[in-house]
């Protein structure tokens, strides 16, 4: 096993760890805001590690740049939908109380 293989595995493991943390947070946290907090922060870090692992595995700058673009758009989409959901949840709280 080369150093690259080792690094890819380590990065994948780190990515899965953060994904698992985000999922546990989603399932265990009590309200919308803290659930979104777990999802948006932990999952995006997890995706970052998986993307790094994939880029390293391919070992080409062009592919790495495309993977970086995918990661960037995933973060943008996740951030936008989290903002939308958080604002809706906040409004429902206000309407409910």
């Amino acid at each position: 096993m080369t150093w690259t293989d080792l690094a890819v595995r380590l990065l994948l493991f780190l990515g899965l760890f953060f994904y698992a943390a985000g999922t546990i947070g989603l399932l265990r946290f009590p309200d919308a805001a803290s659930r979104l907090h777990a999802l948006t922060k932990a999952d995006n870090v997890g995706l970052g590690f998986v993307a790094l692992a994939a880029a390293l595995q391919w070992g080409s700058v062009a592919v790495a740049a495309k993977i970086a673009a995918v990661w960037l758009f995933a973060i943008l989409a996740a951030g936008t939908s989290a903002q939308l959901m958080a604002r809706m949840a906040k409004q429902e709280d206000r309407d409910g109380s």
Binding site: L76, A77, T80, Q83, L84, R87, M88, Q91
Partner: peptide, 15 residues
């Protein structure tokens, strides 16, 4: 919803 439109607007203009 104005607050939601604000977020979705920035995203749409970028996308």
């Amino acid at each position: 919803d104005p607050a939601a439109l604000n977020v979705a607007g920035s995203f749409g203009r970028l996308l």
